[in-house]
Amino acid sequence: PQLADQKTLAKQIHEAYLKNFNMNKSKARTILTGKTSTPPFVIHDMETLQLAEQTLVAKMVGSSAALLNKDAEVRIFHCCQCTSVETVTELTEFAKSVPGFSNLDLNDQVTLLKYGVHEAFFAMLASCMNKDGLLVAYGNGFITREFLKSLRRPFGEMMEPKFQFAMKFNSLELDDSDLALFVAAIICCGDRPGLVNVPHIERMQESIVNVLHLHLKSNHPDNGFLFPKLLQKLVDLRQLVTEHAQLIQEIKKTEDTSLHPLLQEIYRDMY
């Protein structure tokens, strides 16, 4: 009976993941490996960026008059924020579908999301990356790693650590069923600062991590070290988010750009 319960939990979490996220690894890999009828538009310099802004991005975030006068770095930063905000809303819906999450104290739900959403976001972003670039605008665009790296300080430093993480993470060859459980494990984490009902969350975390372990054994029978490797990725993601949060604080202080209110809430008093 316990095994049946674990399989049901894995299935529920996988279904919630497929239902709530617009992009997933399977879709992203289809596009990145050229198996779609229309390939993504490649953004590799200022000219192609402008072309993309007139078509793909205009559809995505609308064209704001205030943004038109800003430099390319600030406009790209704005697009990154829009993607983050959309992903946070998707992650919130996903979290609510994880059995037990909605029964938690509401303050604890807020805390788990505050600390978990960026770790989950960067884990899922890896699905949209290869060594040369990143899928953007719902898979309709592909922005090159070199172009992102060439942006002026501090914006040029923003994505490179995510690419470095993604290349190692992608070598684990997880599929969407594995990622769904991994993302749930990131969110249901009992050691976030300020949690009220730690034992309740630890019980949830334990059952999700157990299911993840079991699922990896059956889905990747030839890779016995996958589970400990993934636990290490949880540590790496925390470090990645800490550095990202510091960079955001620097941008806020030194650049003439605004931070979305939802992201302000999340970054305020974070680390």
């Binding site: 946070v88 809303t89 919130t92 509401l106 739900q109 807020v110 939802l262």
Partner: peptide, 21 residues
Amino acid sequence: LKEKHKILHRLLQNSSSPVDL
């Protein structure tokens, strides 16, 4: 905590209210 995270709180309580980009 809920007071300092009004948008997250709203998203948790009401899934049908979108966040402006």
